[in-house]
Nucleic acid binder design. Structure first.
Lengths: 181, 181
DNA sequence: GCCAAATGTTTCAGACCTAAAATATATTGA
DNA sequence: TCAATATATTTTAGGTCTGAAACATTTGGC
């Protein structure tokens, strides 16, 4: 019942191209994925600016805070948004100045800064989030529900593949005796 | 063996939410797409820095130039990469300083600046591109060939949907009597 | 208790990116 | 012709983002 890895590889090689070590298919897939993400991002960016005079990073940060009733630390936000701590600090600075976010040291651990939306911040976010949701739906409106579902599922598989590849590299790098692959 | 489409639809509707006008599914799809793109981008960014001491925007720009034998104008590059003209100018400035790119006004139209890779630029890019292709393949290695193909196809459909939504908006906007909504 | 290591955040230098204004050149039409 | 308009690029101001260093606080071992 075992299919040899070489067989799968060969099949892929022959289908895509004759050259060994060729991975043009994955490259094309990545470029297409990137194009989609960029198109959506810049369209949302434009609409947020035009309709709410705000920016995508600010919206994203507020979206994270809105999901948590008890507030989030700078580190948590930075992990969720997959950006650096320093970046969160900077974006928060703007939101603080506009009175949309509150920042205070945690009672138990004064290293930690807890971020929450202010009442004004919650109001502002609520208005934006509704429109944002509509925009996204509008952008994907050309897909059938079955297609969206399948795309969602395949991207889940992709995410798993990415984490696997990234962890393999990070985990196997500092340890010399660790076998790769 | 056939599951009726309506069954899938109803299943999704009931599963997701009862509220009309709800578009959480598309939102989740977008967030997952964004996660995948961000994971890939930052992994590639890290490897380009560690292995070649360069950046992703520089690599992307060189990749565009490499594809064209006759050179590209600033505007063409900016359209392909979906970034602003000013940004291209800035990234090119760095590549010029490193001798990887050449810039000269077009003979017929002196407004236009034609960009080409220098010999050194082509050499440098070639080395990076090979590794880059491997990295991408590695990141997608957890997907079966059939899955990659289907994902590619669905992202094609997505791209079409995006262009449709974006054009619909841009075409219908500047003409009206000035209702802001 | 006290010091070293660990953890969380900010600061810093530098690159990227955008939209809008400014500049430079080309084209068009009275 | 020549001014108005269109097109291509650069400049500018300001926000975003990174990785690394600096700073602050906590924790763990002695």
């Amino acid at each position: 019942m075992e299919i040899p890895v070489t067989a799968i590889l060969l099949d892929r090689e022959t289908k895509a191209s004759e050259r060994p070590g060729d991975h043009k298919d994955e490259l094309r897939l990545w470029l297409r994925l990137l194009t989609c993400a960029t198109l959506i991002e810049s369209e949302i960016r434009t609409r947020l600016r035009e309709e709410f005079k705000t920016t995508l990073p600010r919206f994203d940060l507020m979206a994270q805070l809105e999901k948590s009733t008890t507030g989030m630390t700078v580190g948590e936000v930075s992990q969720r948004l997959m950006v650096s701590n320093g970046n969160v600090t900077a974006v928060v600075a703007g939101l603080l100045a506009d009175g949309l976010v509150d920042k205070r040291p945690a009672a138990q651990d004064r290293r930690v800064q807890v971020l929450t939306l202010t009442a004004q911040g919650r109001r502002a976010f609520k208005a934006m989030a509704e429109r944002h949701e509509d925009w996204i739906a509008e952008l994907f409106a050309g897909l059938e529900p079955a297609e969206t579902a399948q795309l969602f599922q395949l991207l889940g598989r992709t995410k798993a593949s990415l984490h696997q590849a990234i962890n393999r590299r990070q985990g196997g790098e500092p340890t010399p005796t660790g076998d790769q692959i």
